[in-house]
Amino acid sequence: MTLLSTRGLSKHFAGLRAVENVDFDLPEGEVRALIGPNGAGKTTLVGMICGRITPSAGRIAFDRADITALPAHRRIRRGMAYTFQITSVFARLPARENVALAARRRLRGAEADAVVHEALDRVGLLDRIDQEAGDLSYGHQRLLEIAMGLAQAPRLLILDEPTQGLSESEIAGFTALLRDLAGRTTVLLIEHNMSVVMETADRVTVLDYGAVLAEGTPAEIHENAAVQAAYLGTG
């Protein structure tokens, strides 16, 4: 079943075509990587999907319903979760409360507590549960973002460059986490780190100048000459 699809989705910023006429389909259960050079329009595309950015044209369907007109919070309630490219945690609140806010939208009391502990444990931050989010290192704040996504138990998890600023070992941990999610949660992953993409994605979509340049398995994308020219540079 197709969980998410867009038709003719476009966003123009004062003449700049950040996203142009994108038709995109994401089957349920798949881990899809979205790659492309800086400024290709990846963040803008997922921003329209989750409701942060109003499209200039086009339609979005989630779980067979047209959600183009829904405000962001109602899309999230339908089962999307979005983690920000630019870390956006509650800096003056403890890690615990950051994740609890994510969990409390659907759970209360002891159930919410359990989910908070589990989510922090999965990203390896359980020992920092009472630390203020603003005091965490940049990498840990990124992991906290991911924990906030997990705590929502979303049907579609949108991750915008989650490994940016993570150490090698944290990236390995993240890759393992993603593999563990695979099959149960549909994931849309914006990622610059190609080894993470190769190891985790079922399929890859390449965006260039706001349009879909190619789509295929990681191996196919790796071989694709056009992609190499646009994105991988020398290849």
């Binding site: 999230i76 609140l93 929502q152």
Partner: peptide
């Protein structure tokens, strides 16, 4: 507690699914 979160970062609260 959600009000406090709105004070700290309203956009994030919205993107956690709160009205």
């Amino acid at each position: 507690k959600t009000l406090v979160a709105v004070r700290e970062n309203e956009e994030r609260v919205r993107m956690l699914g709160y009205d």
